[in-house]
Amino acid sequence: MVVAFAILAAWELVTAAGVVAFRRPIYNALALVANMLGLAVLFLILNAQFLFAAQVIVYAGAVMVLFVFIIALLNPASDLTLGRAGNEWIYGLVFGVIFAALLGGLLFNRGLTGRQGASTPEAINAVGNVQALGAALYTKFLFPVEVASVLLLIAAVGAVYLAMRRIR
C-alpha cells in the first residue's frame, strides 16, 4: 500500500509539474488529465470506489474533454509558443510559499494520521460503497445536495439563455 502510494504521489507531482511546464497547451491539458486520473486512483486506494468512477467520468472525461476541445478549436498561434512572462514568477513564489506554509502548519498541528470516524472501511464494505454514499447523501446531507442541485440548475438555465440570446 505504501509502495503504491509512493508511486502515485510521484506520478501526481510529475504530471502537476507537466501542467505548467509544457510549452504547448494541448500537452498542458493532457498532463492535467493524467493528474486527475492519478487522483482517481488515489480514491481507489482509499476504498472510495464510487468517487473513483465519478472523478474519472466527470473530471477526466467530461470537463477535460471540453478543455481539449477549446484548445484544439481555437488553437491560437500565439499560444503555441507560450513565452515566459516578466514578473509572474514573483507572484508564483509568494503564493507558493504561503501555500506550503499553510500545508506545513496543518501537518505540524494535526500530524499525518487523522481521526477515525464511524464510516470505517469495514462498515462501508458491509453495506457497499455506492449504497453507503447514497444513504449519506440523501439522508444526512440532503439539504446541501438539494442546494447544490438548484445551483447547477440555475447555471444550466443561464447557459441556455446566453446561448439562445447570441443566436437571436
Binding site: 482517481a40 468512477a53 477526466a60 472525461g61 467530461a62 474533454v65
Partner: peptide, 11 residues
C-alpha cells in the same frame, strides 16, 4: 469511466 477516457483516443 473507461469509455469517457476512450474519447481522448479518438479526439
Amino acid at each position: 469511466a473507461v469509455t469517457s477516457v476512450g474519447v481522448f483516443g479518438i479526439f
